[in-house]
Every structure is written in C-alpha cells, then in structure tokens.
C-alpha cells in the first residue's frame, strides 16, 4: 500500500505549494489584519453598548440597543455583506470590499459581544456597583474597576467563541471580492486542480486562531484562581 505518498502528493504537494504559497500568504496577511481590526472594534463597541444599556434609564435607548443586537444576531452575515456592498451604491455610497467586510463583521460581532457582556453584568449583584459608589467612585470608575472586570471574566469563554466564529466569517468577504485567505486558496486550487493551497489555508487559520485561544485560556486561568 502506498496510499501515504499519494495522499501527501494530493494534499501537500511541494511543487504546487511553492507556486501558490506567495498568493495565499499575501491574502493571509490581509485576513489577519482585518480579523484583528474587526475583533478590536467589535469587542470595543460591544462593551460600550452593554455599558450604555446598563447605565441608561431611557426606554427608547434600551429598545434601540436591544433592537440593534437582535436584528444583527438574526441576520445571516452573508446577506448583510451583500446588501451593504451591492445596495449602498444605489444611494450613491460607494464602498470597497474590504471596508464592507470590516463594517459588517464588526457590527455583527459587536451585537454578540454586547449580549455576552450584558449577561455578565446582569449576573453580578447590584451590591457591587453600590459598594463602589458608596466609596465616592464615579459611575464610570466603578464600571471600569469593579463591574466590567467581573462581567468580562464571566463572559470570556463566550467572547472567545464569537471571535473565532468571526475570524472564520472573514471568508465570506470573498463573495464580494475581498481578497482573503480561503477565497484565494480556493482559486489557486482550482487553477492547479489540487487541494494543496486549501491545506495551506487551513494551517493559516490554525495559526491565526490558536494563539487567540491560548491567550483566552491564559486569561481564564489567571483570573479563575479566585
């Protein structure tokens, strides 16, 4: 049986790897950068929205936030991407594929993160905020030093999951022409009639996501001891 050599020849062909790696890795760079920006913005906006929802006593503000979150969580990301990219030009807003991917995925991630962080805040006893305020801390100082550190700790596993899903969703950008790693790997494997570029893209995904998961585990472990 010499299945092994032919398996390697098919899925990890050195010649094809040498030819396609520059294309795949170039788009991998773009994907990593975009994924990073989406995660930073999505988490930042999500925390901000959850904090605003906790702070506000106006029902209209709460309704707006909850509406934003529920609609964006329900929409398939692909549909949102296509609508933003192909519909906006009709109202004379032109948008390039990278920006459209960034905006759509950031908005969707922020909706999920808002819900994670909100559930973390809701799980805390009201007494935490009161204790902090009773010592003269402002609302925002109490949020920063007392409420959010605990809420984020509770929400961390969920946040990690959403971020991984978001990194993978960057692949949807290829539909509107964003040059991301999975799309370019697929194109390359069609060109050479060989799946080796896809194997490479899988390695790229692992390289992107694994450090992220490890960092999150480290955070959980560090804050989990008490």
């Amino acid at each position: 049986m010499d299945a092994t050599p032919s398996l390697i020849h098919t899925f990890f062909n050195p010649d094809i790897l040498a030819k396609t790696a520059p294309i795949v890795l170039a788009s991998a760079g773009q994907t990593v950068l975009l994924g990073f920006l989406i995660i930073v913005c999505g988490i930042g906006l999500g925390i901000l929205l959850a904090s605003l929802r906790y702070y506000t006593r106006r029902r209209t503000v709460t309704a707006l936030i909850v509406g934003y979150v529920d609609v964006l969580r329900a929409l398939p990301p692909l549909v949102l991407l296509i609508v933003v990219y192909f519909a906006l030009p009709y109202v004379n807003v032109s948008i390039d594929a990278t920006l459209a991917t960034f905006l759509c995925l950031s908005a969707i991630l922020s909706a999920f993160i808002e819900e994670c962080v909100w559930s973390g805040i809701a799980a805390l006893a009201q007494g935490q905020m009161e204790a902090a305020r009773s010592t003269g801390m402002t609302w925002s100082a109490a949020m920063r030093h007392v409420v959010l550190p605990q809420a984020l700790k509770i929400a961390l596993p969920q946040i990690t999951n959403r971020c991984i899903a978001t990194i993978k969703n960057t692949a949807l950008g290829s539909v509107i022409g964003f040059n991301e790693v999975l799309g370019s790997a697929q194109a390359a494997s069609s060109d050479f009639a060989n799946p080796t570029p896809l194997t490479l893209s899988a390695l790229v995904y692992i390289a992107m996501i694994l450090p992220f998961v490890l960092f999150s585990r480290y955070l959980e472990h560090r804050t989990g001891s008490h």
Binding site: A131, T135, M137, A141, H226
Partner: peptide, 30 residues
C-alpha cells in the same frame, strides 16, 4: 460620599481583588 462610609449586610466585597485591593481601590482611584 468619600466622607460617608457604608458597610453592607451582604459585605459586597470585590471578589476579583485581594483584601488590600478592596480596601485601597477608592484611595487609589478616587
């Protein structure tokens, strides 16, 4: 409120901070 201390029935200590961290948080950030 810096001049009116309060002690709660349920203690309301900050679980993510040490004992000293609990006592010094307001000193440091207020």
């Amino acid at each position: 409120r810096q001049n009116i201390g309060m002690v709660f029935q349920q203690f309301n200590l900050y679980p993510h901070l040490t004992v000293l961290g609990n006592v010094t948080l307001a000193l440091r950030c207020v």
